[in-house]
Design a protein around this nucleic acid. Structure first.
Lengths: 200, 200
DNA sequence: GCGCCCGGCGGCACTGAGTGTCATTAGCAT
DNA sequence: ATGCTAATGACACTCAGTGCCGCCGGGCGC
């Protein structure tokens, strides 16, 4: 074949193998659940050896959460470009509400991932660890925000509180099968967060 | 022997074996870390078979966290006995500050457990799951508190925010090697929680 | 006393994640 | 084509966790 028709020129061979593994893994997770899917099965489906799977992903969880890591990068870039004159908290608020919109748009995919997570104790634990990374990102953003930054001790606590709220909000949204207004609830929660939970 | 002297009458034989396993496990975890301690080693140290370990604890983590589960029970009972006329949030506040005092009193033990947790990714993940149980307990307390209960949606969010704050606070305390004033910081955090994080 | 039943236990074998090692191979530049 | 290097497959191993089975000891009625 003179023009190398369908198959891409092989420079990104490694990327293609990773993609094949990811695709196989996510499909199998969705179909049979996380625990019931063995690494052997994923590797077989992707046409590589079991050993090679672990050359692309350190653990089975890592494959599952690769998309989540991509989103964390998006959040990071959102938070790294504050609007002029806005406080650190406002920047974080904007970034989180933007993410909420993305979640709403990717509703089906989010719900599927949540179902898979709920079906595995290991994944539920790993999910919480991912949340911890988000929390760290938020704390950092609150600390180093342009004009209205928070004192470090307050930033850590505020980030913990924010992340806790977000988790609770997402949990509520998932339980409503994604029918709730995630962005709207986010706005309400942020108002509550700013105003305080005390009697007033 | 007519009076069955030292050996307890065998009803609590099972409890004694569990205790032996627990003691061996915690000692080995403290000395070599969680990951480097095999179940075989724990069973050997406790004088039972490897298979028996799993008859007493469903997983290796379960052995590690057995103390934490006891504390959760303490918290539950604290929160179940509200003072007359106090709001749900005040009850939770009292219970959490009481726990903070316990943590301060058990400083060395807490620090040791924290070091062991930090030394194992599996334990860190499992620890976050334990926190989730605390959060559920708080949410329930806020919802069903005597006079000043919260509406359910607010309660879940408030519990998430509270638990996030507590985690951040504990993290700070651990990083100070337990030298910080945990109760004092808790009081401050609760004030912040009530007053809100927004620009005043 | 004697057989019987039953609950705990040890032993064994198995699955499945994750890791180390090594020989082979495939891509790529010269 | 040749040779270098990195990716790969194959094998062996550790360790958590589970199922299964046979044994042993202790109460039970007879």
């Amino acid at each position: 074949m003179s023009i190398k028709p369908a198959t891409v020129p092989p420079p990104n061979k490694r990327a293609r193998t990773q993609e094949a593994l990811l695709e196989a893994a996510l499909a199998l997770f969705a179909e049979h659940g996380f625990d019931a899917t063995t690494v052997d099965r994923i590797a077989e489906e992707a046409g590589v050896s079991r050993r090679s799977f672990f050359r692309y992903f350190p653990t089975k969880e890592a494959a599952f959460f690769s998309g989540q890591r991509r989103r964390l990068g998006v959040f990071r870039s959102l938070v790294a470009s504050p609007l002029p004159g806005e406080s650190a908290l406002e920047t974080v608020r904007r970034a989180i509400l933007a993410l909420a919109a993305v979640y709403t748009a990717d509703r089906e995919e989010r719900l599927l991932q949540h179902r898979v997570i709920q079906g595995s104790k290991h994944l539920m634990a790993a999910d919480l660890q991912v949340d911890a990374e988000w929390e760290a990102e938020i704390a950092q953003a609150l600390r180093r925000g342009g004009c209205g930054a928070m004192p470090p001790e307050t930033a850590a606590i505020a980030a913990g509180a924010l992340m806790g709220m977000i988790r609770a909000l997402l949990c509520e949204w998932y339980e409503s099968e994604g029918r709730g207004d995630l962005v709207g609830r986010g706005v309400e929660a942020f108002a509550l967060f700013a105003r305080g939970f005390g009697p007033s």
